[in-house]
Structures are given as C-alpha cells and as structure tokens.
C-alpha cells in the first residue's frame, strides 16, 4: 500500500510522456477526421472554398432519390453476410480436419493462410483473370466438357456479386481457420477421450465439446469478419468498380465515386456516416465478445 502511494506521481508523469506521441497521432489523424465526418454530412462542399449548411438535405437525397445507395447498402450487407458465413464455415471445417492429429498439420496451416498475406489488389486482379471469358474457370469448364456453364462471370449481373464474394472466401478462409484451430488446440484432449469411452462418436464430440467450447472464439471471429467485410472497397474496385450496371456497387465504391469523381464531399460524407454507424455497432459488440471489456471491468473493480 505504502509503496503505491509513494511512486504514484512519477509514474503518472511517465505514463503521460510515453502515451503522448500515440495520443497525438491518433487525435490528429483519427479523432479529428472522425469529428469532421460527423459534421460534414450537413453541408454541401466541393472540397475547397465555402461549406454551405443544408441541414438534412443530403440524408433526404440519399434515402429517397439515390437508387444506387440502396443497391450499395444491400450489396455491402450481402457481401458481409455471405463472406462471413463462407470464411467462418470453411475455416471451421479446415480447422476441424487439421485438428484430427494428422501428420503435417502445420504444413496445411501454412498453405491455407498464405493467401492472406497477399494484397487484395493482386488477388483481385488474379481472379479477374481466373473469371475472364478466356480465363482459367471457363477453360476448366471446357476441359471437363461443361461448356454450357461458361459465362462472362464478372460481366453478368447475376454472377458478378457471387464471384466477388467467392474471391473473398477463397482468400480469407485461412484467416478464420487459424483462430479456430488455435482454440481447438487449447481444448483438453482428455475431454475427447472420456467422451469416446462413454461411447460418443467423433462427430458427436464436435457438437457436444468442440463447438460449445469455441463459443468465445466464434463470436470474436464472426465480429472481426463482419467488421472487415462491411468496409469492403479494394476488392470490388479492382474487380468490377461497381459494375456491371451497379450490380456490385457497395457503400465503399459508392462513397469513393461520389467524393472523388463527382467531387460531392458533403454527400459522400453521408454515405460515410452510415458506414460509420454500422461499424460502430459492430465494434461495440466486438469489444464485448473479445474479452477486452471484461478486463476493463475487472481492472475498474480492483
């Protein structure tokens, strides 16, 4: 007790000194623009000169006159939902298979995570070539005699969005896998042994042991995937730029076009504020499920 009282002030000063550079960076380049982005939606602004206050006009335009906004919102949600289901689903199956105590398990983990390290721009451009009319997929279909399935995958309104989602699932399933695998490997093997002695099949133990014990990891990874995929921009911009006919327009691309092509910064900010709001809700849930909130609560109690 005596010790803490004695050193408090010096330590407080050191804490502030050590934190200062980080706080300055974050305040100037994250918090300040964040405040601006909450204000900008209420103005008309060309990026230079005067800001004209127009109240809720931007919001009204977006909700009532901008048909692309609704398409973009729908596509962002579709991408988030199916992207998350796909990556978490496949990541779970892969982790489960690897966790069967097979040989070379670390090699598989290495291979499956590899695509995560590559830039989305590269994987996007690569998949443009895979899905090209003369690309790998159509050539593969021809090779196995299924020419009737060939398509201009990214130029077809019906297949463009699913193709983009598939690309994301292809690239990021390894990301969810490493979290789930780490979780599985921390489960006490004796639990499985005693369940097997009691006559449970391996499949049963997946539902009775693995999934319940991984609840925490599942919630974290689902929230992370939702957060990452809701802000999708790079992949869509590289692969289709929102086309054909707006079929793959997402909030990120819609915002970019409005702000940086049509130079409507105020209006672009309205779209940004919607993204911000959704991401904020996701982040609040993430803080809860990640366990950081629990740490803070415990720290506060002590």
């Amino acid at each position: 007790m005596e010790r803490t009282v004695k050193r408090d002030y010096g330590e407080y000063v050191m804490f502030c000194v050590f934190m200062l550079p980080a706080v300055v960076f974050i305040s100037v380049f994250i918090l300040y623009p964040m405040i601006q982005s909450l204000v900008l939606p209420f103005f008309r602004w060309k990026g230079y000169g005067k800001l004209t206050f127009i109240g809720l006009k931007n919001f009204v335009t977006m909700f009532t006159k901008d048909e692309f906004f609704w398409t973009a919102l729908k596509n962002s949600l579709l991408f988030s939902f199916f992207g998350t289901v796909g990556t978490v689903g496949i990541g779970f199956v892969l982790a489960l298979l690897i966790d069967f105590k097979i040989r070379f398990w670390a090699v598989y983990r290495f291979l499956f995570f590899l695509t995560v390290s590559i830039s989305v721009v590269i994987t996007g451009l690569l998949w443009v070539k895979v899905l090209d009319p003369f690309g790998l997929l159509n050539a593969l279909l021809a090779a196995i005699g299924m020419e009737h399935l060939q398509r201009v995958w990214l130029g077809d309104v019906a297949t463009a969005m699913p193709a983009i989602i598939a690309t994301a699932v292809w690239q990021y399933s390894g990301f969810t896998m490493i979290f789930l695998l780490a979780g599985m490997q921390s489960i006490n093997p004796q639990l499985y042994e005693s369940a097997t002695i009691d006559g449970a099949t391996r499949l049963r133990t997946v539902f009775s042991i693995t999934i319940p014990l991984l609840r925490h990891v599942f919630s974290v990874i689902i929230m992370l995937q939702l957060i990452f995929s809701f802000k999708v921009f790079d992949q869509v911009w590289v692969m289709t730029q929102g086309g054909p006919a707006g079929a793959t327009e997402v909030l990120g691309t819609h915002l970019y076009k409005d702000a940086f092509r049509l130079v409507r910064f105020g209006y672009g900010s309205v779209i940004a504020s919607i993204m911000f709001f959704v991401a904020f809700v996701f982040s609040l849930i993430y803080i809860r499920v990640s366990g950081y909130a629990g740490t803070v609560n415990r720290a506060a109690r002590n």
């Binding site: 982005s37 910064f265 911000f276 991401a279």
Partner: peptide, 15 residues
C-alpha cells in the same frame, strides 16, 4: 479496441 473496427473509408474525405 473500438478503433480496430473503424472503416477508413468513413474518414477518407476529411483526411
């Protein structure tokens, strides 16, 4: 922790 989830796009215009 909250900032991990901030979409950079939401800040791109003011930045």
């Amino acid at each position: 922790v909250g900032m991990l989830g901030i979409p950079v796009h939401a800040l791109i215009i003011p930045l």
